[in-house]
């Protein structure tokens, strides 16, 4: 970073940083993770666009009205919303450095996440049992890809949640674990935001088609 002009006339004041200053550990993690989430957002945008294009091509197969049960979707949405607020409570207790309460809220969050996945898999199993498999029509291919990708994200979120609970149990709420929990918090709330798009575009607008 040192410029030649500095050495020639040392009496002149230097207006730039010669060496890069020290960064505290993990200082850029949050921004980096946010940028990862934004790239994930683009993946979902492409899947939504695919569904938007193919969502009406039933190939004389079942349409959303024949397949979707909005009561089940509403229940599923409730599970994810509740898991979002309980994760928020976990973050609030983490702020107060209460290990036990944080772990308890994380367990509750995980259970709501499991309930969400369970309901979603039940729905998928029911659809596949009725012959509405991904191979049936372009609508179903794009449906399973979009909703399945979201479900996969929730699954990995649960794996991550479990890992962090083991970490917190072993090492407590140390700085590194707090940072990890904050990243997972962003991930978890982000999945909830994606789900808003899913239940609106796929389920509600699907029923209105």
């Amino acid at each position: 970073m040192t410029l030649a002009t500095v050495s020639t006339q040392s009496s002149e004041p230097v207006f730039h940083v010669i060496d890069e200053h020290a960064h505290p550990e993990g200082a850029s993690t949050m921004l980096g993770f946010w940028i990862y989430l934004m790239s994930d957002c683009l993946i979902f945008a492409i899947l939504f666009a695919t569904f938007g294009v193919l969502g009406g091509n039933y190939a004389a197969g079942p349409a959303p009205k024949d397949l979707f049960d909005l009561k089940l979707v509403a229940l599923n949405t409730t599970m994810l919303l509740l898991s979002s607020i309980t994760y928020g409570f976990a973050m609030l207790t983490m702020e107060k450095s209460k290990v036990g309460a944080t772990q308890a809220w994380l367990v509750i969050t995980g259970l709501f996440g499991l309930a969400f996945l369970g309901i979603e898999l039940t729905e998928f199993a029911h659809m596949i049992h009725e012959g509405a498999t991904p191979q049936r029509s372009a609508f179903l291919s794009s449906f399973f890809t979009l909703v399945g990708t979201h479900g996969l994200h929730v699954t990995f979120g649960l794996v991550w949640l479990t890992t962090l609970m083991v970490q917190v149990a072993r090492f407590g709420l140390i700085e590194a674990n707090r940072r990890r929990l904050m990243c997972l918090s962003m991930f978890w709330h982000f999945l909830d935001v994606v789900w808003i798009g899913v239940f609106t575009f796929v389920y509600l607008l699907g029923m209105l088609r």
């Binding site: 505290p24 949050m30 979002s84 607020i85 928020g88 973050m91």
Partner: peptide, 18 residues
């Protein structure tokens, strides 16, 4: 500032959002 990106909410802000 390591914590700026994830500046936390309060109980009331979470409840209002919920």
């Amino acid at each position: 500032h390591a914590h700026d990106a994830a500046s936390h909410g309060t109980l009331s802000s979470y409840l209002i959002g919920f």
